[in-house]
């Protein structure tokens, strides 16, 4: 029996699906990408560009598809699904990694105690209606007590005891409590994040610096630069505070220049007044912030309110 032609046929089959390259192709099946690191064959590139590109692309695609078809598959209505391995090429993310959500007080407790979370069904079976009803919300089961036509009243109840009213109050209280706890959880999370994260620490440090600076200025704001102030217990001596005493005897020219400087200072107008006067000049009129001025004049009511005020009853009469 001659099997040589069978073998040859098999070899031919294999040949058609095998790609041989000097440098083996790099395949990233996770991202469906193949990279061919072989240098470009200049001769065939110049001879027929499209043909050359098609040939290299076919080789690459063949290698990639071969690797994809050899992956483990699962069946689906649309055909077999190949299970892809995680990608080997690292691409940058579009958004930063999500931060883990801060735990609520209950979640923390449950974690410490090892309590598993149980999912409650949203619907409960109503025996009377013989159907599934929502646990809460519109026609929810939690309002059953308020709506039932007959309610047991405790023996020691007041004369004006209203059972449906009481049930409603209880339900609303529960909601309010939940909301309160929610707000508390949010506040707690904020606080923890503030102290834990680096940005929170930075903010804290900056605030501390500001307070320190304010304190230092106030301490040196007396005539004696705080020398005779009453000290608090544990208060440290302020650094960098130096009182400067000029010599009592100076040359006449220096004394003269000092005094002239004082006089010129007295003559000069304060800065704030000067800027105010400058705004009166027509050149600076454009500097006036009209929107701000209107807001100030109308006490935040807006220009319409201002116009109404100015027009007063006249405008109203006009309308009639």
């Amino acid at each position: 029996m001659d099997v040589s032609d069978i073998l040859a046929a098999h070899a031919a089959k294999q040949k058609s699906i095998q790609v041989e390259k000097e440098i083996p192709l790099e395949i990233d099946a996770g991202l469906l990408t193949v990279t061919d690191l072989n240098p470009v064959d200049t001769e065939s590139y110049n001879a027929d560009l499209e043909e050359y590109l098609l040939a290299t692309a076919r080789d690459g695609a063949q290698a990639l598809i071969a690797s994809l078809f050899s992956l483990p598959t699962t069946s689906s209505p649309d055909g077999p699904l190949a299970q892809l391995p995680p990608p080997t090429t690292q691409l940058p993310r579009a958004k930063p990694l999500p931060k883990p959500k801060p735990l609520t007080k209950w979640e923390k407790f449950a974690k410490a105690k090892g309590i598993q979370k149980k999912r409650k069904d949203k619907k409960v079976w109503d025996e009377e209606k013989q159907e599934w009803v929502d646990r809460w919300g519109w026609k929810g089961a939690n309002k059953k007590e308020e709506e039932q036509w007959l309610t047991e009243v405790p023996a020691n109840a007041d004369v004006d005891f209203n059972p449906s009213h009481e049930a409603r109050k209880k339900r609303k209280e529960k909601m309010a409590k939940n909301e309160r706890q929610h707000v508390q959880n949010l506040a707690r999370a904020e606080k923890e994040q503030g102290s834990g994260s680096s940005s929170g620490l930075q903010i804290q440090a900056q605030r501390k610096r500001e307070i320190d600076r304010t304190l230092a200025t106030t301490r040196t704001s007396t005539a004696s630069m705080g020398k005779f102030d009453r000290k608090l217990e544990g208060e440290k001596k302020l650094k960098g505070v130096k009182r400067k005493f000029d010599p009592t005897e100076v040359s006449s020219s220096a004394e003269k220049s000092q005094n002239l400087e004082i006089l010129s200072k007295l003559d000069r107008e304060p800065l704030s007044k000067k800027s105010k006067r400058a705004s009166d000049t027509p050149a600076a009129a454009s500097v006036l912030n009209v929107r701000k001025a209107v807001r100030f004049a109308s006490k935040g009511q807006g220009s319409a309110a201002l116009a109404r005020q100015a027009g007063g009853s006249k405008g109203k009469r006009g309308k009639r």
Partner: peptide
């Protein structure tokens, strides 16, 4: 690669 193929998927339909 990011432009055409950036999304990470765990399976692909071989016929697709």
């Amino acid at each position: 690669m990011d432009f055409f193929n950036g999304e990470v998927i765990d399976s692909i339909c071989l016929a697709g």
